[in-house]
Design a protein around this nucleic acid. Structure first.
Lengths: 147, 147
DNA sequence: GTTGAAAATGAAAGTCGTTTTCATTTAGGC
DNA sequence: GCCTAAATGAAAACGACTTTCATTTTCAAC
């Protein structure tokens, strides 16, 4: 890892190592806050911006990418071999993955038909997971609490 | 329209009428800022929050929904009969639509297989539109300008 | 091992789209 | 016309994200 970064012109530091390791140990998608919390357990002196910058760095060197679900929180998703979509639980915010090779094929064709050169695809299903389907708090109706 | 809102417990005001009309006249997806600009040309006294609240209201009564492309700007998409995905140009931010009935069928099945009760689907292709593909500024590489 | 420039860090402040507050005005059922 | 709930506009608050800045650290070159 240190070598890998060196070749890209970045230096290794104890903080960076901790942040990288923590990120890759977590299999789930994390937000800056979540990773910050985890890292703080191991080193209370690490700053929020350091975590943020390193998460950005991980993306920059191609090892992760940002995921935006529309709830205002940016999550970081390790780049894996297989393209995948997201199942996002509107109640507990749990994020699961599912394979999408077939769909990506269809989408690539669609893009080309529209003169688009695609950079990436986002396929997302929002709904309620098994655990949250029975919670009364998840009833979706016209009037919730705003206004 | 006035009747429609009345039955839902909302009142009609000149500002509201103007905002609703302006929103539905625009075929494209708009952000609060964009609609605010448009509306201000017709009534300089309308406040930003009024536009924002009415856009939220339009969503609340089911006539539009928020679209989040991950660029930090929430756009509002008129709810149409046909489910559609989005083609988002990373360069000029243009947003086009394409039909997705087939994909939604596949996704609904996927959701069920995972114990999810789906509320809605997001299908997005990010890339460069015909017009922007040749711009040199769109070259996607590891190092752009940050750091 | 020392040195020095470039990079990294942490704290704090800044940014910016979104949301809320609050005093005032308005709509619309009575 | 009256009255209450809803709506408005200005301004402030919010919150996630990003930048700034003074200081520290890394590491390649001596």
């Amino acid at each position: 890892m240190k070598e890998f970064l060196r070749t890209k012109g970045f230096k290794m530091t104890p903080q960076r190592e901790l942040i990288f390791r923590s990120f890759f140990e977590l299999e789930e998608h994390v937000s800056v806050d979540e990773l910050y919390d985890k890292v703080r357990h191991l080193d209370r002196s690490i700053g929020y911006s350091t975590v943020w910058r390193n998460l950005k760095l991980i993306c920059k060197v191609g090892l992760a990418e940002e995921v935006n679900l529309g709830d205002g929180i940016t999550r970081y998703d390790r780049v894996t071999k297989i393209p995948h979509g997201h199942l996002f639980c509107l109640s507990c915010k749990k994020l699961e993955e599912f394979p999408v090779e077939q769909l990506v094929g269809i989408l690539a064709r669609t893009a080309n038909e529209n003169g688009f050169s695609p950079e990436n695809f986002k396929i997302e299903i929002q709904g309620f997971c098994k655990d949250c389907q029975n919670d009364s708090s998840n009833v979706v109706e016209s009037g919730e609490d705003n206004e």
